[in-house]
């Protein structure tokens, strides 16, 4: 379980203009959850994510990963063994010259034995559907495949929690779809907790729980269904609203009543049929 207690974080605290990035953030994430985090640029999503694997440590408050405090430098590697992170640009995350050697980079760092490394690498290559490409140099792959390589690299480390920091935002539409499908599969197949930062509302709809951030604070924390029934708040934060809740609210204004918890196309179609 990840537990964040009253977390404050300020960039450049010693300088003339310190920038407050997080204010009084408290939350807990249970094992196996798929949590999405949304918010405008600069709302503190990435800063929060970086606290989870101890890239940043709190100015005030605490972050506990399975009871391990990230503030303590001695715990750094224990925290990172538990929490893996996939960043936005796959190009800058691939370290080695072939797909296979890059995926084994993480497990090699953990110092586990060779046979186990090969096993883990094989498994994550299969899980990501990269068998065909394992001896390819990364620059020969499409950007979507590159992102799959970075995900495989984190999976091979056997981390319990994986943070995705807008993993699809640099991909083309096909790549977006493929990578997100792979992430959804992960959620089905493995007992891995997913913390997913995104701008795409279609992706948010698939999560168990959504956290909305603004100006370094948590504004809403609920199931996507409930979040998307609060259109006024979302619009006031200049966030995109998924198309179905948007249409429903417009129809409601014109006197056609559609329940606010309807957010998927299928639900919407069924509801219209009953009218």
């Amino acid at each position: 379980m990840i537990k964040i207690n009253d977390l404050y974080f300020t960039y450049y605290p010693e300088s003339e203009n310190p920038q407050k990035a997080l204010t009084a953030v408290s939350l807990s994430i249970k094992e196996g959850e798929f949590v999405s985090i949304i918010g405008q640029n600069g709302s503190g999503k990435t800063t929060l994510a970086k606290h989870l694997n101890a890239i940043l440590t709190p100015t005030k408050g605490s972050v506990l990963i399975d009871g391990i405090n990230t503030r303590n430098k001695e715990n750094l590697w224990d925290v990172r063994k538990k929490v893996g992170m996939v960043f936005q640009n796959p190009e800058n995350q691939i370290i080695c010259s072939t797909v296979r050697s890059d995926i084994s980079f993480g497990p090699e760092n953990l110092g586990i034995n060779r046979v186990e490394i090969e096993n883990r690498v094989d498994k994550s290559i299969e899980l990501m559907g990269l068998s065909k490409y394992q001896d390819y140099p990364p620059h020969m792959l499409s950007i979507g495949l590159k992102q799959k390589v970075t995900i495989a690299g984190v999976l091979a480390m056997g981390t319990k929690y994986i943070i995705f920091d807008e993993p699809t935002s640099m991909l083309d539409s096909l790549g977006k779809k493929e990578v997100f499908e792979v992430i959804l599969n992960l959620r089905k197949k493995r007992e891995v907790t997913i913390i997913y930062i995104t701008h795409l509302m279609e992706e948010v709809l698939k999560s168990d729980r959504t956290i909305v951030m603004s100006e370094g604070k948590i504004v809403l924390d609920d199931s996507p269904k409930k979040i998307f029934s609060k259109l006024k708040i979302l619009r006031s934060l200049s966030l995109d609203v998924p198309i179905i809740p948007d249409i429903s609210s417009r129809l409601n204004k014109r006197g056609i009543s559609i329940p606010s918890q309807i957010i998927t196309t299928q639900e919407f179609v069924n509801c219209l049929k009953q009218l």
Binding site: W77, R80, G84, Q93, F105, E108, N109, L110, G111, V121
Partner: peptide
């Protein structure tokens, strides 16, 4: 800079305690 972050979050800490593949 990005690469350093990616490497560190994959537990890289130099050659010490690192295993190599077969």
């Amino acid at each position: 800079e990005d690469l350093v972050l990616a490497m560190e979050s994959r537990c890289y800490r130099g050659g010490e305690g690192r295993t190599r593949r077969i």
